[in-house]
Design a protein around this nucleic acid. Structure first.
Lengths: 248, 248
DNA sequence: GTAACTTAGTTGCATACTGCAACTAAGTCA
DNA sequence: TGACTTAGTTGCAGTATGCAACTAAGTTAC
């Protein structure tokens, strides 16, 4: 903004909120954290955790705070996604929401408890219908015809289906060039477990040999002396390589 | 946002603005559109075009409108980038800005004229110092120590240097998996011209053979019957393949 | 007119990466 | 002890990549 004319009271300002898409692996499938709405509008639909941005915090801080207040989760991977701002996206008034994405390691899904605000936070399997929703990543929405939100169109309240689709698209896009997937795994994991995470996110099967070769060749994982013992042959445990925390 | 308690007047709401990073190629180098500030704070520094979001428009519409008002540009590639919201980012008050990135074809740089608001919009070569600024893409800012903006730290006003660094990082990241680079070229271009755009953005030289092979093999470009005639051997003109408009 | 120069564009090859099939390894269970 | 399941490796053919050397087509100097 150039600020050649700066008058903050010049316009009625929209409300600013954050919404958070929390992904986690459960039973081998990708799940997300939703809160079932108890009141209209969209009563009974799934909504994302979130809330208002306070006057002295950044939107990213607001996302972290709301996540902790509503789900008891701290110190999880959290990244800003996209800002949703269609004037009609919330029938109650003008609300602009900065969507975030959080990734919860599989061994921490039990830490989630309904907090001060969110009554029934629960993990639900990502519905297949999400694939048919066009994500708002990048250019998509700029100049797109806005769709007015009617009630009872599907699982999700408001435009939260688009937010989830956008989060999934972002996760997929970053998967091959970052080490984001490890954020969904426990500290130590087998390569087969890692492969299952990739497959769940991408929605297709991967070749075992190629997958292992790449992870090892790029030194994204480090061998540990430990093994995971189960019903059959024990599997080597690995951990994410230190520098590999996010970017490739 | 779950909306279990919805009261829009509950909090003082920040001002909502947009800022736009307009990239264009000039003299073989990547340039960006800046407006030299005429008043404090940051008098004499470069600022990005932008302005307030109006009550009945989305932030993306606001970006398109401001771009046209301030620079006379319509129908250019425009994508939403990232939202900047540090409480101290603007010394005049709490302002949250949704940054956008625009790409202007090389043959349209002359269309830019100072509009209703922006007095001295001009293209400047991307300063090399931008490479040292950490972009705010993805996780970077979440939980990062915010740096309070002092005047006279460099070229840019406010946190606009971070916005530009973020735009550049996004452009680089998308370059290899999308056809974004063609948005900076005229409708018809030679493969050498295309290569120069890639090189300018990535900041390193590419192999001619590999570059041409990839573009052709992926069918990202279509041959035209025309040639570009210049001082030496004429070069075949191509255009972006129709489906290749953005994604790979 | 021709030789030098510059830019456009191709050919050839050694190397690396990928997808697929088949194999071996190490455990459990009946 | 042998069938079964999951872990992990080997081999190979096809493809993509990086580099060097080459040919092609124009302009300019004399």
């Amino acid at each position: 903004m150039t600020g050649t004319k700066f008058d903050r009271t010049q316009f009625e300002q929209p409300s600013l909120t954050v919404d958070i898409v929390v992904f986690a692996m459960r039973e081998g499938a990708l799940h997300l954290l939703v809160i079932e709405r108890g009141i209209p509008p969209f009563e009974g639909c799934w909504a994302l955790p979130g809330g208002f941005v306070l006057p002295r915090e950044s939107v990213d801080q607001a996302a972290a705070r709301e996540l902790e207040e509503e789900t008891n989760l701290r110190d999880v991977y959290l990244e800003q996604l996209y800002t949703f701002s269609e004037p009609e996206r919330d029938p109650r008034g003008r609300v602009v929401s900065v969507a975030h994405m959080a990734l919860l390691p599989a061994d921490r899904v039990d830490q989630v408890q309904g907090g001060s605000d969110a009554r029934a936070a629960k993990f639900e399997r990502l519905p297949a219908s999400i694939e048919r929703i066009e994500p708002a990543d990048g250019r998509s929405t700029v100049g797109k015809s806005k769709r007015k939100r009617e009630e009872s169109e599907g699982y999700f309240a408001f435009d939260h289906d688009v937010i989830v689709a956008t989060a999934l698209a972002r996760l997929r896009g970053k998967l091959e060039f970052t080490t984001l997937a490890f954020e969904l795994l426990p500290e130590e994991f087998t390569l087969t477990e890692a492969q299952h995470v990739y497959e769940a996110i991408l929605g297709r099967e991967l070749d075992k040999v190629t997958f292992r070769r790449r992870l090892l060749a790029m030194e994204l994982v480090r061998e540990t002396p430990r093994m995971r013992r189960g019903a059959h042959r024990p599997a080597r445990l690995y951990r994410a390589a230190p520098r590999a925390s996010v970017w490739l």
